[in-house]
Design a protein around this nucleic acid. Structure first.
Lengths: 217, 217
DNA sequence: TTTAGTTATCACTAAACTGTGAAAAAAGTA
DNA sequence: TACTTTTTTCACAGTTTAGTGATAACTAAA
């Protein structure tokens, strides 16, 4: 549920120290001790941010970064270099390799945390679900893309979405969407559900015969 | 069309030097010499990135940053501090104030450019139809040229422009442009929108059926 | 397999909403 | 006043959305 950070450093102490502190900040921390491992781990956990040490055996940070930037799965991940090298050229090379930031060691933990937080706040809200709805624009973002839903369809989706996995009875949906007095035919709801399914995929809304519908995420 | 950077520093030399280099890198550069001016200019040009000096007269960087973070129009703009202060606490405070990055001066131009580029590449690559509006003269500058808009058209544009990408409902537009009691017909707004579209191009203002309009830049 | 109850789908109609040109009304100016 | 510019209105065309009944498909039980 939290944002994931992959710490890559060949020194156990550093991994542990940074990892401990970032865990305490509420991130899910993963580690790797060289570039090769970093890529494997990154592919596995899809971190939001990678803290990448420069000097490492097997594959150094630069190589790892360049490799990842060529991989479709990882080319958009945030990569921050941690390096003891102060030199200007090294920094520029790192950015050329695709880095998003370059932090020189030693760095205080407090500063590192601030910096990580600043980067993380820019990362789009962690998708806890595969569907994101925005009631101000009635936009729905799904793995299939984003689209604007008509009012009724959106209202129904929003209702189901308000409590995923809860089965809403037909009566409940009618009363909450159409209100007390308005009476529309039975089939109307089915038609709206069908239109939603066309847009969201058939698996998202599940029918409970004789009862109603629920949404699964 | 390019990405816009606002450079804020009280020293003319620095503004000019950084400005010259960033212009050469292909950015549209705007400048301000204190926090107060920075906010005004930021509201006017909607920069993608603000390079903000820490120490300035009238309003310093921290204050300016905090103020902008509270404004709906500017709360999402990238803000990078430039500061001569190496101290840890200052850096942390800056991040707390809402900074996205903190660069200590002196910094080589090459490193600064790399860093700016790294930040810019994360900003949506969408063709930036830069529109600059000047409320004193009601002049609007677009890639198609500059023109003076009639008051109502300008007010509507300015409202939409105050928060690009936000969908303004018809009700919201009516109440903010015409005020509480004044009642005009429904189609009036559509007519104004059409006239704006004729001048700005059809793609700039997007209709959300049953909701309202938004501007995309 | 048959049956009854329920749900899914389709084609179509009605309703709601937006875009548009023309022109009237209002406001501003010389 | 006469004239220009801006704002609003109106009628209607074009689109999108909502609702409906007929019917097919499905499901569980007998």
């Amino acid at each position: 549920m939290s944002q994931r950070i992959l710490i890559v450093d060949d020194e156990d102490d550093i991994r542990e120290f940074i990892g401990y502190n970032l865990t305490r900040e509420g991130y899910d921390v993963y580690t790797a001790s060289n570039g090769q491992q970093a890529i494997e781990e990154a592919l596995r956990v899809h971190p939001h941010l990678i803290l990448l040490d420069m000097m490492m055996p097997v594959m150094d940070g630069r190589q790892a970064c360049e490799t990842m930037r060529k991989m479709a799965e990882l080319k958009d991940v945030m990569i921050v270099f941690l390096s003891a090298v102060q030199e200007e050229q090294c920094q520029i090379d790192s950015y050329d390799a695709g880095a998003d930031d370059y932090i020189t060691k030693p760095v205080s933990m407090r500063v590192l945390c601030s910096r990580v937080a600043a980067i993380m706040k820019r990362i789009k809200p962690v998708a806890t679900t595969s569907i994101i709805i925005d009631s101000s624009s009635r936009a729905v973002t799904t793995p299939q893309g984003e689209f604007i839903l008509p009012r009724k369809e959106f209202d129904i989706l929003q209702l189901l979405f308000s409590e995923p996995d809860k089965v809403f009875t037909r009566e409940e949906i009618f009363s909450r969407i159409w209100g007390g007095e308005v009476v529309v035919g039975d089939r109307t709801l089915d038609v709206h559900i069908r239109r939603l399914r066309r847009k969201l995929g058939d698996d998202v809304i599940v029918t409970y015969k004789g009862i109603g519908f629920k949404i699964v995420l």
